[in-house]
Design a binder for these strands. Structure first.
Lengths: 225, 225
DNA sequence: ACAAAAGTGTTGAGAGTACACCCATGC
DNA sequence: GCATGGGTGTACTCTCAACACTTTTGT
């Protein structure tokens, strides 16, 4: 059989966009305006252009939905079970993105599709296999948080240590010890003081920024020496 | 634009098949018998059937090339740059597999395509973007070796501690301390003695097997507490 | 002065790392 | 008996985890 003779599936990209808001971890969902799954919520996505790389397609979708440019983006997994889309065989390459806090406004879509942020811990029923995709994305985010510095992508450019700790606690779903947290992050050398302070209810807090020259990955402990 | 109107790329699966042989880490490559890249080496793969899941397609290719059934298989990454295949837009979902030592015979292919094992450290020029794919697969294998028990997939069902250590050293590309290696792996409780011994040049070595009830994953050390 | 959040050290336990010699077998 | 690979223990260092009070500001 020749190259041209094989039947071709449709290929889409879908993007899980995380952001931190009000001490909560949220994802951007779109209310579908057409069948199939009309009226249900889904993660943003669309067809891959025939002359467009997968990452370009993901960035284009991201721009169309959020109007943020400079985000962390990584490929997540490719889902392709026959039957996952009732319209026909469709393979989706999923990405996950982290939008910094403060870029939370979904762009008013060209079509009247409704878009809003939902807590990852309290989701509506989802179209296609998108519930699976979100579960996998959360697992991956937590996992990466443990051994890389993606956590900083969730915060604005400058932040206090308490804000950073709160971000970790929301994503990991557990409380952390303040002194141990500060000692470890400061000794890791990945952040530096900006010199500024943030005033709030109590004593003003020092502001920090991420040092992008820092090596942001820690080696996993080996199971075997 | 409607579902049916989007132009469709071709979709393939390609599989990086690792195996240990003669104290070396090898991958199975196929010599291409047709253009494009006729006569060059490539990793095994083929088109995804229209009613076949991605994993089924990968397993089918694996069976066609190696005649081994029971292997470790995981999705690696999806490559889809326009221009990576001169015949047309082709997206490939790559998998990586680990064949246990002793299953090394490539099956005589139905077509006369030549197949052989190559050291991952000494590869021929490769078709498409397959050099990239192999580099990424090696990185992933090393990475997984550090925090999961995939290492056992490289060995036959029973093995000595020296053989296990040698496997780790080949994949990681570094020497390990014998006493520390043994202490750590035995205390991890992931292997057990079979009761048998292997005779060789010197003192016979105890044989071990992997305990598949063991928890095969260790938590990474967190960058932050 | 008091409420509210920021900031700060010590100690004990466990894991990692470095290191050298005796043991069982085949020839 | 000797060559070959198998098998074993200890001491030091470092990292992790648990834990409570003082400081600075706004009201």
């Amino acid at each position: 059989m020749e190259y041209a003779d094989y039947p071709r599936p449709s290929v889409t990209v879908d993007i899980v966009i995380f952001a931190l808001c009000d001490e909560d971890l949220r994802v951007l969902l779109i209310k579908r305006g057409h069948p199939p799954f009309e009226g249900m919520w889904a993660i943003p996505g669309g067809f891959v252009g025939i002359d467009e790389s997968l990452e370009e397609a993901a960035l284009r979708e991201l721009r169309e939905e959020t109007s943020v440019e400079d985000v962390y983006l990584e490929q997540l997994y490719t889902f392709g079970d026959p039957g996952r889309d009732p319209r026909g065989r469709t393979i989706t390459v999923t990405y996950f993105a982290i939008a910094p806090a403060g870029t939370l406004r979904p762009r008013a879509g060209d079509d009247a599709a409704e878009a809003r942020w939902w807590s990852i811990y309290d989701l509506p029923p989802l179209a296609f296999d998108h519930a699976n995709i979100l579960a996998y994305a959360l697992q991956r985010l937590r996992y990466k948080l443990e051994y890389t510095a993606v956590g900083f992508e969730l915060l604005p450019e400058t932040f206090t240590l308490s804000e950073l700790q709160a971000a970790y606690e929301v994503v990991l779903g557990e409380k952390l010890d303040k002194r141990n947290f500060r000692r470890k992050i400061l000794s890791a050398g990945v952040i530096e003081e900006t010199g500024g302070y943030r005033s709030g209810e109590g004593r003003p807090a020092k502001l920090y920024r991420f040092r992008d020259d820092a090596v942001a990955e820690v080696k996993a402990r080996r199971l075997f020496p």
